[in-house]
Design a protein around this nucleic acid. Structure first.
Length: 124
DNA sequence: ACGCTGACTATTA
DNA sequence: CTAATAGCCAGCG
């Protein structure tokens, strides 16, 4: 494990968007409707970088420092598994938020995942 | 500037 | 079914 970066990515203190890959991810994630979820790969594909699903997860790591808040709990892996829950505080927070939105979570996995799945590509 | 890391995914054994 | 491997690419030391 490595220590978290406090500095995060190159934010723009000037208030001007740096149009980084991360910002694109944040904006897209914010557009996820309540009670819906999507996957890292779907987000990456919507941004045009299909093979960089890992970067989406990396971006989510910073999402906790970004405002407005990013509903990172609505982003799971392709199997509907809450792989990123351990990055919440506490980890149970993620499942809690999902259930609050009407999504059933059993053993860190979303029930009827495909039913709640929201494809970011349909927005575009 | 080079190398390692990672909230992923697809493929292969 | 599970485990290992490769591809992917931006950020950071």
């Amino acid at each position: 494990m490595k220590k978290e970066s406090k500095k995060l990515n190159t934010l723009n203190p000037s208030g001007h968007r740096d149009a980084s890959f991360f910002e694109l991810v944040f904006e897209l994630v914010r557009q996820i409707p309540q009670g819906r979820v999507t996957s890292y790969g779907a987000i990456a594909a919507a941004l045009g970088t299909k093979g960089s699903a890992r970067m989406v997860g990396w971006a989510m790591n910073q999402s906790h420092f970004v405002k407005p808040a990013v509903p990172a709990h609505r982003v799971v892996n392709r199997l509907g598994r809450l792989t990123g829950k351990m990055h919440f505080s506490p980890p149970e927070r993620m499942q809690q938020l999902l259930e609050k939105e009407g999504i059933q979570v059993l053993d860190d996995q979303i029930v009827h995942f495909q039913k709640h799945f929201w494809d970011p590509n349909q927005l575009i």
